[in-house]
């Protein structure tokens, strides 16, 4: 019997615990984000799936079928819990996101400036992704570090499978939530994808989480 396989097999119960951990983490993130960006950012109850990379891309496409093109921000994080976060939003929402920090005292550039557009999108992505991932890590007694966020501009949804360089044989833990910035009418998706290397640790961390009560 292959013990390592046993260790990383997620049961339905593990999935339910992970969903609740995410739910609490995203709730805390939403609450603390308000103190940082002076915005009410709502994060829906997250959904957890265990998928192969191929299915994952199909799943993202299925959920974003209404939008012809997406902007995506990708950011990697690593700790015991290691993976990638993707913030996806319709290209049409970019302007609204860019205007979130329009009261900034620097830099003196107009809204159409590509550098400012990119920087503001990256900043909001960085803040949202960082808040969510950090809170998950905090609940599971982990500490994570982030790589700089990258903007994948106007990624065509149909090309997602060709564009992404994910290993098709690997199973990914996929967590999806819808974020909604109140008063700005901006909606998007946040995906956290963790690979097989995090599974064994995550399974133990979830058990430890429940053991606290």
């Amino acid at each position: 019997m292959n013990t390592s396989q046993t260790d990383t097999t997620f049961t339905k119960e593990d999935g339910a615990i992970l969903e609740e951990v995410m739910n609490i983490a995203f709730g805390k993130a939403s609450s603390e984000l308000a103190t940082v960006v002076d915005l009410r950012i709502l994060l829906n109850a997250p959904k957890v799936e265990f998928l192969q990379a191929d299915d994952l891309l199909r799943w993202i496409k299925q959920d974003t079928a209404d939008n012809d093109t997406l902007n995506m921000i990708e950011q990697n994080f690593w700790g015991k819990y290691t993976g990638s976060a993707f913030l996806a939003f319709p290209t049409s929402a970019s302007k609204g996101l860019v205007s979130l920090f329009e009261d900034d005292d620097l830099p003196p550039m107009d809204e159409e400036n590509p550098l400012l557009v990119k920087e503001n999108l990256l900043e909001i992505g960085n803040i949202l992704i960082g808040a969510c991932v950090s809170k998950v890590a905090e609940l599971l007694d982990d500490e994570v570090t982030f790589s700089p966020p990258r903007l994948i501009p106007r990624m065509v949804v149909d090309n997602l499978a060709n564009e992404a360089r994910l290993d098709p044989d690997k199973v990914a833990i996929l967590i999806k939530t819808v974020f909604h910035i109140q008063d700005k009418d901006i909606k998007g998706f946040l995906f956290l994808v963790a690979g097989e290397e995090s599974m064994a640790w995550l399974k133990t961390a979830l058990q430890n989480f429940m053991a606290k009560f």
Partner: peptide, 28 residues
Amino acid sequence: LTADIQPKAYETVMGLGAAMVVPKPPSS
């Protein structure tokens, strides 16, 4: 019980007559 305790949400539930708000995850 909620993880997302923002002032507005807190005021709303207290205004609706909640006895109190306990942050998630709860403890004994």
